[in-house]
Nucleic acid binder design. Structure first.
Lengths: 225, 225
DNA sequence: TCGTTATGATAGCTTTACTATTATTTTTGA
DNA sequence: TCAAAAATAATAGTAAAGCTATCATAACGA
C-alpha cells in the first residue's frame, strides 16, 4: 500500500490538528511515552515541552489543556480499534464470528502498526488501561460530550452492540453489555497486575488469552436465549 | 439500639482518625458535599477549610493529601455496603438469594442511614459513581495498595465472588465477574446520565431497577452451567 | 517580496499543594 | 483544680502547575 492511512478525528478534539505538522506529531508521539512514564497526574505541558525541545506555549496552540490531549489520544485509540474491527470482520457474515473477532481485538495485545508511524499503539494501549476512564470522569463531561469528543468510543460500543443484537434480538442490554465489556477488558488487566485479588486472571505471558476467555464467557453466556 | 455503630477502617487510610474528633467528622462530612459539588479535580483542602471554618494545615493533620481523603471516603462506602450485605443476608442459606440481595444493595439508591450520623450515604454514593475509579487509577497504586487501603473493596468483591462459587463451583471467573459488576453497577448509572449511547438504561425514576435487572442478568446468565 | 502563519523566547499571574512556625485553645489526668 | 499535653488556628512561605500575553524570528505561499 502506497497511500498513507490516517484516522480522521473530530476537530473539536484539538485546537490545531496535530497530524498536520512536525511539532504536532511530536507532541502526540512524546506525550504517549511521557504519560506512560510518569502517569497522567504528574504529566505537564512544561515537562513535555522539555522532552520535545519546544515550549509550553507552543503545545497550548494544539491542545487546550492536558485533559483534552488525553481525550484526543484515547479517541484516536478507539477509532483505531474500530478500524481494525471493520477491517478484520470484512466479508464475514456470521455475527458470532464477528463478535469473537471484536473481542479478540479489544483484549489482545496490540503491536505497533506500520500504517500509522509516529504512534505507538502498544504504548497507547497502556494509557487506555491506566488512564482512559479519566477522559469522562470529570465534572465537565456533559459540556465536552456536546462537542462530540466521545463519538469514537460510542461508535465502537454500538458496533459491538449491533453484533450482539444480530445474535440475539431479544437481549435487552446490548449497549450496556458492550460498554461494560470494553471497560472490563482493560480493567481486568489493570487488576491482574496491581490488585490481583479483584481478578481471576493471572498476570503472565497468557494474561491476554485469559482475558479473552473471560470476556467471551460473559458475553456469550449473557446472550444465550 | 443505643450503642452506636462505627465502621472500623484501616488506620493506614488516615494520619489522625477523623471519627475521633469534631473537626475530623466535619472534614469528612463537608468533603463529601464539596467533592460532589465541584468535582474531585477542583476540590482542594483550601476550599474545604473555608467551608468548615478551619485551616488547610489542620486538615493536613488528618489526611496526607486529597487523594488519601478520597480513598478514605470510598473505602468507608464499600465497608458500609459489605456491612449491609452481611446484615441483610444473615440467616439466609440459599446462595442465589444471597447474591440477589447483594446485587440489590450495590445497585439500589442508598438512603441516609441514621446509624451513621454525619455521613450522607446518598451523597457518598454519588462520589462512588463519579470518582471512585480515581482511587486506584494512579501511578502509586502498588505503593498504597501495600498499605492495605483497598482491603474493604477486595473483601466485598470476594464476598460476592464466594456466593457465585457456591452457586456454580465450576465457574472460572468469580472474582473477575464480581469486580466487573461492582464497577459496572456505578458505571452504567454514569453512562445513563451523561453518555446515554453507552447504555440501555434510561435515566429516570426506575433507572436503579433497570440497573438491578441488567446486573442480575449478566451475573446469573454467566453462572449458568 | 510581502504578508501570513507557525514557532520560540520570555515573562508574568493565579492557584495548588504543600511545610513550617508560633500562638492560642481545649482536653485530660494527677 | 491546675499544669502539662494535645489539638487547632493564624500566618507565612515555597515550588510547581496551569495557564495567558507579548514580541521576535523563521518558514512558507502567492
Amino acid at each position: 500500500m502506497i497511500a498513507k492511512l490516517q484516522i480522521q478525528l473530530n476537530p473539536a478534539l484539538y485546537l490545531r490538528d496535530p497530524q498536520s505538522s512536525d511539532l504536532g506529531q511530536k507532541i502526540v508521539q512524546e506525550s504517549i511515552l511521557l504519560i506512560n512514564k510518569i502517569g497522567f497526574e504528574s504529566f505537564t505541558f512544561k515537562k513535555l515541552s522539555v522532552e520535545i525541545g519546544s515550549t509550553e506555549a507552543s503545545i497550548y496552540r494544539y491542545f487546550e489543556n492536558k485533559h483534552r490531549l488525553l481525550v484526543y489520544l484515547i479517541s484516536w485509540y478507539w477509532s483505531y480499534v474500530e478500524y481494525r474491527i471493520t477491517f478484520e470482520t470484512h466479508n464475514i457474515a456470521d455475527p458470532e464470528e464477528k463478535l469473537s473477532i471484536a473481542i479478540r481485538l479489544i483484549t489482545e495485545e496490540l503491536k505497533d502498526d506500520d500504517n500509522f508511524p509516529g504512534i505507538s499503539e502498544s504504548e497507547l494501549q497502556q494509557i487506555v488501561i491506566n488512564e482512559s476512564d479519566k477522559t469522562y470522569l470529570t465534572k465537565n463531561v456533559d459540556e465536552i460530550n456536546k462537542e462530540g469528543v466521545f463519538r469514537g468510543y460510542k461508535s465502537l460500543c454500538e458496533t459491538i452492540a449491533s453484533y450482539m443484537t444480530e445474535i440475539n434480538p431479544d437481549f435487552e442490554f446490548p449497549r450496556s453489555l458492550s460498554s461494560t465489556c470494553l471497560e472490563a477488558a482493560h480493567q481486568q488487566l489493570f487488576f491482574a497486575e496491581h490488585l490481583p485479588r479483584l481478578s481471576d486472571l493471572k498476570n503472565g505471558a497468557d494474561v491476554r488469552e485469559q482475558n479473552f476467555q473471560y470476556v467471551s464467557t460473559i458475553i456469550f453466556n449473557s446472550l444465550k436465549k
